[in-house]
């Protein structure tokens, strides 16, 4: 076999291998991104549900607080737990809704630096911020899960006009931060612009 034929053969083989590899890679990539899309879809609908849940809690607060005013004005004794339940509601609701707010990119941030950097630099900076965010979320999730577990172990409760075990309340934070950690992971592996850039419909503050 002369060197020339040999070189030709080698080149053909190489290109074949590369092409083959590329299709396989493409396929795998497609599978992975398909899977990611699926994860996102599930993740998203769960998170949206939590937002509406908080919204309904706020509506419930408005109704029960108003109800107490009416009760007081007509001289009937008011419902004692309204204030307490409202307090728990805004806490649980705020952390339940937080992951979707993060997904939309609505948690206020100061992106002056990333806006002035060139595209590649901005991308790297965003990636870095996402990693920091992921670290923060995982740390909070880990240590707060410990707190919730300890509260569960020691049976601690909050004694107000309602007696409520402490652990479900404390479990809200690790759950919320775990969901937000997932969001940061999704951002890192599957870079996507903030959905918020598309359409802000909110009245804001």
């Amino acid at each position: 076999m002369n060197p020339r034929t040999w070189r030709h053969f080698a080149a053909t083989c190489m290109s074949h291998v590369i092409a083959c590899g590329r299709t396989r890679f493409c396929q795998e990539y497609r599978e992975v991104s398909e899977m990611l899309r699926h994860v996102r879809a599930v993740h998203d609908s769960v998170l949206k549900g939590f937002v509406l849940f908080f919204g309904v809690l706020v509506g419930f607060i408005a109704v029960t607080v108003s109800m107490n005013i009416v009760l007081r004005l007509i001289g009937v004794s008011t419902v004692e737990w309204v204030g307490e339940v409202a307090e728990y509601s805004i806490y649980v609701g705020a952390f339940a809704a937080a992951p979707w707010v993060l997904r939309l990119g609505l948690h206020v941030k100061i992106d002056i630096l990333s806006k002035t950097l060139p595209r590649a630099g901005a991308r790297a900076l965003d990636m870095f911020a996402d990693f920091v965010g992921l670290t923060v979320c995982l740390s909070i999730a880990y240590f707060s899960a410990g707190a919730a577990y300890n509260a569960f172990e020691s049976n601690s409760a909050i004694y107000k006009s309602l007696v409520i075990p402490e652990w479900p309340l404390l479990a809200v934070i690790p759950a919320s931060f775990l969901l937000m950690a997932i969001e940061f992971v999704l951002r890192i592996v599957d870079s996507k612009p903030d959905a918020a850039d598309a359409a802000p419909v909110s009245g804001g503050f």
């Binding site: 509260a151 909050i158 402490e166």
Partner: peptide
């Protein structure tokens, strides 16, 4: 500290 010792109340 009723969350640690309920009887403290």
């Amino acid at each position: 500290y009723t969350n640690v010792l309920p009887e403290a109340d």
